[in-house]
Design a protein around this nucleic acid. Sequence first.
DNA 1: CAGTATCCGAGTGGATACTG
DNA 2: CAGTATCCACTCGGATACTG
Lengths: 137, 137
Amino acid sequence: MAVSHKQQVDAEAMCPHRLVLEHLTSRWGVLVLIELLERSYRFSELRRAISGLGGRGVSEKMLTQTLQTLERDGLVHRDAKPVIPPRVDYSLTGLGREAAEQVRSLARWTHDRMGEVERARQAYDANRQAYDANRQT
Amino acid sequence: MAVSHKQQVDAEAMCPHRLVLEHLTSRWGVLVLIELLERSYRFSELRRAISGLGGRGVSEKMLTQTLQTLERDGLVHRDAKPVIPPRVDYSLTGLGREAAEQVRSLARWTHDRMGEVERARQAYDANRQAYDANRQT
DNA sequence: CAGTATCCGAGTGGATACTG
DNA sequence: CAGTATCCACTCGGATACTG
């Protein structure tokens, strides 16, 4: 039924570039972009690749939706070859590549800083527990 | 009731750094980080500042939740002054500043490229419409 | 293979009322 | 002021079944 793209968060009164930002930082958007930075992928291939990144896989539905959104925003190029069985290749556009690189570097940053984050969490949780403990006395 | 932080997406089998990434790219996380990059804010002040960025405001609930998550991850520092009426200042930690800068640059990128995105969308929608049209004949 | 269509449960996030 | 607690609408996203 042609998915009128009124699906996502609906813009409402939100400035449009916030929307795009949400698209590329979305749960699967991030992974798709990073994966496509490596090379182009076919649909199912991409699905498997993403599932391989830890976490459980994407549903077909969400991958489709994510890809369509990114394609509409001009970040991903969809190349459907008219053969049987169907073959569709996805790749980044120039615009998409720029975005993907930023996203990847942010992802790498979080990866590199995990140690510090973990420590911060332990400290936080410890305080938290101490606080909660002497509260119920 | 002490919000056991089992709330967000729950980690499940997802690699931990994906979680942190979701925190700082979350709807309000992005805005909080960018805003705090400017200076430190009090709770309500921050709430208003964010509402001023277009889009409708954050609820107290979501702002609280967002701030707690970011604090736990060691990105935001919370300074509660024991005065009446209460005064709490939020600011970025060193770690938080690094993250925020990346997030801001991604936000700026999307802002700068909006023109191209809009054009891509128009092209996409036009094709789409043409396609849908001669389908129902 | 590459989707589309439909249903549905869980969780997000907003509104409201209340507390220290 | 700075939250917490509760309720609830709505959306996201998964499972499933079907199509070209």
